[in-house]
């Protein structure tokens, strides 16, 4: 305990030997990963390599077959019974843990029957227990931050893709998460709109938000990432700074992947 705690303090997310299979498809084959406070960690890799599955395991949208997800020294999704056995955490408890992890999806998943403001205050009021007035004030702050201060009464169907994704980011931030998980947040967007979403993410990183970003936007990786993880076939192949990975990959598979991208 003593020796471990001093240097694990600034580690926000820790994945230890995560395995996940869908039927006979072994998708994650022992993933180890650490994200430090205020760090932007980008995950790159070919389609089907398990990047989304890893992100979804971290907030337990998928249940890992084995391994530990630890967020600030607390294990996600499991608890240890008095007799020392591990058991899955009951739903409401897991829901509480998930508030600490914000997630942004490729397809936004905004609530279409609520206005922008409704989307932003739904969970803070219903889950976090904020008063409506407080939640509204917080939501307006966040909307201003993502550049949508004037669209709070719009419904998602009235927004462009880039605006939807910025609302989705604000919605996740409204829960005050300790880390933000992004799963290809710009992959569903028209090329000319990608920039406005990346700009918001870049701004978040300057504010010190801890971020785990799955992306194919290499300019974002180069400029914003503190560290890059290259994943292939369910394994972490290589980890390093953007310079190391993008410019001088040590592993042939990484080089091949990057070549195909350019």
């Amino acid at each position: 305990m003593m020796n471990g705690s001093s240097n694990s303090d600034d580690i926000v997310v820790k994945c230890v030997d995560i395995h996940k299979s869908f039927g006979s498809n072994h998708v994650l084959k022992g993933i180890d990963l650490q994200v430090k406070a205020s760090e932007v960690l980008c995950i790159i890799g070919p389609s089907g390599s398990g990047k989304s599955t890893l992100l979804r395991c971290i907030n337990y949208l998928e249940t890992p077959d084995s391994g530990d997800i630890i967020v600030h020294n607390q294990r996600i999704g499991v608890y240890t019974k008095k007799n020392g056995q591990r058991a899955p955490l009951p739903g409401p408890e897991l829901a509480k843990q998930r508030r600490r992890l914000g997630m942004v999806f490729q397809h936004f998943n905004l609530f279409p029957h609520m206005t922008v403001l409704g989307n932003l205050i739904e969970a803070p009021v219903g889950v976090r227990g904020l008063s409506k007035a407080d939640a509204r004030a917080l939501a307006r702050d966040l909307l201003a931050k993502v550049g949508l201060g004037d669209r709070e009464d719009a419904y998602p169907a009235q927004l462009s893709g880039g605006q939807k994704q910025r609302v989705a980011i604000a919605r996740a931030l409204a829960m005050g998460p300790e880390v933000m998980l992004f799963d290809e947040p710009t992959s569903a967007l028209d090329p000319e709109i990608v920039g406005e979403v990346l700009e918001v993410m870049r701004f978040l990183s300057t504010e010190g938000m801890t971020m785990l970003v799955v992306t194919h936007e290499m300019s974002f990786v180069r400029d914003v990432a503190d560290r890059v993880v290259f994943m292939d076939e369910g394994c972490v192949v290589e980890t390093g700074t953007p310079q190391e990975i993008l410019l001088a990959p040590k592993v042939a598979r990484t080089a091949q992947f990057l070549e195909r991208l350019l």
């Binding site: 907030n59 949208l61 999806f105 998943n109 969970a123 219903g126």
Partner: peptide, 17 residues
Amino acid sequence: DEGQLEASAALGMTSSR
């Protein structure tokens, strides 16, 4: 859409909520 349930879960809602 299934994504609606995922987004709700990711925001910390219980399944009944």
